[in-house]
Amino acid sequence: MISVKNLFKSFNGTQAVSDLSFDIIPGDVVGFLGPNGAGKSTTMKMLTGFLLPTSGDIHITNLSLEQSALEIKKKIGYLPEGAPAYGDMTPLQFLNFIAQIRGYKGAEKTSRIEQVVNQVELHEVLDKPIDNLSKGFKRRVGLAQALIHDPEILILDEPTDGLDPNQKHQVHKLIKNLSKDKIVIISTHILEEVTAVCNRVMIIAKGKLLFDDTPQALNRKSKYYGAVTLYCSYRADVSELGELEGVAEMEEDLSTGRVTLFPKPGAEILHLVTAHAQRCKLPIDSLYVEQGRLDQVFRQITQDISQEENP
């Protein structure tokens, strides 16, 4: 498990991370969200021991990172931002090097390399210099490198950046298929990724932890959570919908014919809306209950803090 207490990091006077505390237990797949420059990468760099915190404590599997850095580094697989690698090597040479440093020899080494090559599907580029590979393959080489020793803790900084939708899907599948007693931390700008693979979300902005709960809880914070959206095929009088019991607010977009009804807290309005629509014979094309809009919650959470600081 990872236990972080009162973590601070400043670079030449700018506070990159301030007073971060959290615990991550095995089985957690944590999504780190936050605007650019929020301190996500800095936090990850400190967890991997690359950066030393200005102050604060990091304990990983009950070892202090300060005292047993080497021991801890053995347990972590890390994909740095941008998936750097040695460009003059081929993926095979590179993985071979990493496997050796991770302590594998002989047949075990070969089988580990074979397994990660299968996991991220690198076969076709094994003998081309990494410099000549496409962005997607470079990223996959980085992933392979992080997975090669089957680490207890996997820290991935933007693992799907630059991948096409198929490759993204593949990476999501890969993370989901990792055994359930591992700790996975990924940072991303893609909000859907969090709902797709994570069971815990942390939102960081300006170095502070603003939200730490499940993706579902994040959805529930959305104004749109439980709202009912419907589209009419032609202009109709929908104003009565806004007056239904349990509806707090109505939003109407005349150009597209979209109507969104926001419920009062705790109220469920779907059956009221459908009943009303039937009664008034509204020309409804489609109708659905919103699951919450992550981008809106994300903006809400991360902009609140910037407004607090620059009123």
Binding site: T48, G49, F50, L70, K73, P80, G82, P84, I101, R102
Partner: peptide, 14 residues
Amino acid sequence: KSGSIELLMTLPIS
């Protein structure tokens, strides 16, 4: 420059 130092320094080496 390439950032591979981050990789190198997070491997279990000193």
